[in-house]
């Protein structure tokens, strides 16, 4: 069973605890889940990884808090951007809500880039500007 809570409904500042009322039969004897990483920090970590290590036009978007059995994590959608704004979602990065660690499977960066390239084939070429600053 997976329950998702959009970030606007949870406290902006970590740490906090999550208790799921109404699911007592499912989560009997389950202690409250601690969230040490807030949505801002989760998104910041993903944005930094994308920008520094993957591609400057890939951006972390609004995180969703996901509660899954004994685990709680942030799902940060990855979107392709241009100077015209957000072009579309190309994947997601998982951030452990207790440790802040990013879950980065070895093929994740290539998968995100491939999805972004596929999206670009359905859209006008987006501007790129990182070389201009240099």
């Amino acid at each position: 069973m997976t329950t998702q809570i959009i970030s606007e409904l949870v406290p902006r500042r970590a740490p906090f605890q999550v208790r799921l009322d109404g699911l007592a039969d499912v989560l009997a004897n389950t202690p409250p889940l601690s969230v040490n990483i807030d949505s801002y920090t989760a998104r910041q970590s993903v944005c930094k990884w994308l920008f520094d290590e993957v591609a400057t036009m890939l951006m972390g978007h609004m995180p969703q808090l996901v509660i899954e059995r004994q685990r709680v994590y942030w799902r940060v959608p990855v979107v392709l951007t241009s100077q015209r704004g957000v072009l579309g979602e190309v994947g997601a990065v998982i951030v452990d809500a207790q440790s802040g660690d990013l879950s980065l499977p070895p093929d994740l960066a290539n998968t995100l880039v491939s999805q972004a390239q596929a999206l670009l084939t359905h859209d006008a070429p987006a501007a790129h500007f990182s070389s201009n600053a240099a």
Binding site: D52, E53, A55, M57, A116, Q117, L120, P125, H128, S130
Partner: peptide, 8 residues
């Protein structure tokens, strides 16, 4: 890469 940029 056009439309994607590069790792900064």
């Amino acid at each position: 890469r056009p439309g994607l940029g590069a790792p900064a």
